[in-house]
Design a protein around this nucleic acid. Structure first.
Length: 417
RNA sequence: GUGGCUGUAGCUCAGUUGGUUAGAGCACCUGUUUGUGGCACAGGGGGUCGUGGGUUCAACUCCCAUCAGUCACCCCA
């Protein structure tokens, strides 16, 4: 009989992985707390139309990567492929904008996209991200970029690069795209078939092309987006840069940086890591001033980013120390185990200690090995001798010393341990 | 969806031009120590060699298919 395996592109996190994840998660929670950001948790599934309207019906995410199905009520549902649209939905639905002029939120959770797995890419993966609603000002852009950059730095990621750009308003962009298409259409035959498709479907993506001919053509013929950005937007962007300089955040202005999702406007940024392979983007974000309105909410400026937890984990490549235990209770015989469990429970409740009791009825020697394997600080040994004498043996596993303790004194023995 | 590479013990990997009983290290278990961990030594369990077919006297080894993993493309965190 075949065993059932996990779904392609999903992953089991075994206990040795989970201790790394918990360390990263608590680092994220602590970090965002210092900026006064509040966590938001939205459902794993949503109405499909949320993503069609929010992410963009032309994007690959919506077209071919969503896990969607009709439920019994004949409603199309989708496992969330990203979290900005759901957070915006919640922001609108609960009228958070009326509660507060500014909402600074963060999230952490699983997402689903049906892509071919590879390094740094899974079908179920996790993102941590930040969304801020209410501020149109460059200071807010700088704060969000500061958070993204300094969080990754504080985690110990050294080889990271921050690139920023502005892609202007939706109108600027539409104008620029049509100009770009007009110019490049004349050189259509110079492009690979893939890039020709991009030219028709999503011309900005040409700037991501890895084809040298395409790169050269864009260098020679294509004007950069920056020329078509309005004066106000340019001032906004240069204010962001000034703020980043003041905050000593190293960045590169990459005029070719475009974002994949439709909702981005104005400031965009991306953080990459060299130690990652082909999928080198660890964090991506930007402003999306039109999205709240587009999803039926009030006109609201907003900015955010998302960072891939698995990619951070890959780039970190360090093991956080596993947790050791305080006391292992070595018990021989059922009377001893019963008593050991009572003691263990008292120690847990009274001193908040981590206490593990033998439940496998192993030999003393095996139990001691187990205690060592678990890095126990102490063993409490209860055998027939101890039961007869109404005592128990406490062994300090670091120095090997042993004490005979009266049954009634055992709890007090650990008062300062 | 397309292409490259890889599937041998729980893990990391050896396995000769096809040759009879498939190995090592780590991990696990037992013992040396009849009630004491780490170190050392001795022993032990664990594999339908991913799966199915084919070639052959003989397949872990060669061929085909399939599944899985992985890397890359597309796209994205």
């Amino acid at each position: 009989m075949n065993i059932i395996r996990n779904i392609k592109g999903s992953k089991d996190l075994l206990p040795s992985d989970v201790c790394n994840w918990q360390a990263l998660e608590s680092a994220i929670h602590n970090f965002t707390k210092k900026f006064g950001y509040k966590e938001i948790r939205t459902p794993i599934f949503e109405e499909s139309s949320l993503f069609e309207r929010g992410v963009g019906a032309d994007t690959d995410i919506v077209n071919k990567e969503m896990y969607s199905w009709m439920d019994q009520g004949n409603k199309s549902l989708t496992l969330r492929p990203e979290l900005t649209a759901p957070v915006v939905r919640a922001y609108i639905q609960h009228e958070l904008g009326k509660l507060n002029p500014i909402n600074k939120l963060y999230y952490l959770g699983p997402l689903f996209r049906r892509e071919r797995p590879q390094k740094g890419r899974q079908r179920q993966f996790h993102q941590f991200g930040v969304e801020v609603f209410g501020s149109p000002f460059p200071e807010q852009d700088a704060e969000v970029i500061l958070m993204a950059y300094s969080l990754l730095k504080s985690l110990g990621l050294n080889q990271i690069n921050l690139e920023i750009n502005t892609i202007g308003s939706q109108d600027n962009r539409a104008e620029y795209i049509s100009i770009l298409q007009n110019i490049l259409n004349d050189y259509r035959t110079h492009l690979s078939s893939l890039d020709q498709q991009r030219l028709d479907k999503n011309p900005l993506r040409l700037f991501d092309s890895k084809d040298p001919k395409c790169i050269e053509l864009l260098e020679d013929k294509a004007p950069t987006m920056y020329k078509y950005i309005s004066k106000d937007d340019r001032e906004h962007f240069s204010s962001v840069c000034t703020m980043l300089d003041a905050l000593s955040i190293p960045y590169v202005h990459n005029e070719r940086l475009v974002r994949g999702l439709d909702y981005y406007t104005h400031t965009t940024f991306e953080i990459t890591s060299k130690s990652l392979g082909s999928q080198d983007a660890i964090c991506g974000g930007g402003r999306y001033d039109g999205l709240v309105e587009q999803l039926g909410g009030p006109v609201t400026p907003a900015i955010g980013f998302a960072a891939g937890i698995e990619r951070i984990m890959l780039a970190l490549d360090t093991d956080f120390a596993g947790e050791s235990i305080d006391i292992f209770i070595v018990a021989m015989g059922s009377e001893a185990i019963q008593f050991g469990m009572q003691i263990a429970q008292e120690l847990r409740l009274k001193y908040n200690l981590v206490v593990v009791v033998e439940t496998l009825q192993r030999s003393l020697r095996s139990q001691m090995r187990e205690a060592n394997r678990l890095s126990a600080k102490y063993c409490i040994i209860i055998g027939q001798d101890e039961i007869n004498k109404a005592t128990m043996m406490v062994k300090n596993m670091q120095d090997g010393s042993q004490d005979d303790i009266n049954k009634s004194d055992i709890i007090n023995y650990f008062i300062n341990k």
